[in-house]
Amino acid sequence: MPAHASAPQRSRSRRALVIVLVLVLALAGAAVAATWGVQRWLAGQVEHIGDPFASITERPQPAASAAPGAEDDTLDGAMNILVLGSDSRISAGDPNQWEQGAQRTDTIMLVHLPASRDAAYVMSFPRDSWVDVPGYGEQKINAAFSYGGPALLIETIEQLTQVRIDHFVVTDFESFVRITDALGGVRMTLTQDLEVGGTVVPAGKQQLLTGEQALRFVRERKTLARGDFDRVQRQQAWMRAIVAKMRNDGTLHNPVTSARFLDVVSRSVATDDGLDQAVMRDLQDRAKDLGSTDLTFFTVPFEGTGRSPDGAQSIVVLDRAALDPLMAAVASDTLGPYLAANEGSLDVLPPVVE
Results as ranks from 00 to 15, higher is better:
123 M>S: 11
123 M>Q: 07
123 M>L: 14
123 M>C: 07
125 F>H: 01
127 R>Y: 07
127 R>S: 01
128 D>H: 01
129 S>G: 13
130 W>L: 03
131 V>K: 08
131 V>D: 08
131 V>I: 09
131 V>R: 09
133 V>N: 06
134 P>G: 10
134 P>V: 12
134 P>I: 11
135 G>W: 10
137 G>N: 11
138 E>M: 15
140 K>L: 03
140 K>T: 01
141 I>F: 13
141 I>Y: 12
141 I>S: 09
141 I>W: 13
141 I>E: 05
142 N>L: 06
143 A>M: 01
143 A>P: 00
143 A>F: 04
144 A>Q: 07
145 F>T: 00
148 G>D: 03
149 G>C: 01
150 P>G: 09
150 P>W: 06
150 P>A: 13
150 P>T: 13
150 P>C: 12
151 A>Q: 09
151 A>S: 13
152 L>A: 05
153 L>V: 07
155 E>F: 05
156 T>N: 09
156 T>Y: 14
156 T>L: 10
158 E>T: 02
158 E>F: 10
158 E>R: 02
160 L>M: 13
161 T>R: 02
162 Q>D: 14
163 V>L: 09
164 R>N: 08
165 I>H: 13
167 H>T: 10
167 H>G: 10
169 V>I: 10
169 V>Q: 05
170 V>A: 10
170 V>M: 13
171 T>E: 12
172 D>Y: 07
172 D>P: 06
173 F>N: 06
173 F>A: 05
174 E>D: 14
174 E>K: 11
176 F>P: 03
177 V>Y: 03
177 V>C: 10
181 D>W: 00
182 A>N: 06
182 A>I: 08
182 A>Y: 08
183 L>N: 12
184 G>N: 05
184 G>M: 01
185 G>P: 00
185 G>Y: 00
185 G>W: 00
186 V>G: 00
187 R>Y: 09
188 M>K: 00
189 T>P: 12
189 T>K: 04
190 L>F: 06
190 L>Y: 04
190 L>G: 04
191 T>Y: 14
191 T>D: 14
191 T>N: 12
192 Q>M: 11
192 Q>L: 11
192 Q>G: 08
192 Q>C: 09
194 L>F: 03
194 L>W: 04
195 E>A: 13
195 E>P: 04
195 E>S: 14
199 T>G: 03
202 P>A: 02
203 A>C: 08
203 A>N: 06
203 A>E: 09
205 K>W: 03
206 Q>N: 15
208 L>G: 07
208 L>I: 08
209 L>D: 00
209 L>P: 00
211 G>D: 05
211 G>Y: 02
211 G>M: 06
211 G>H: 08
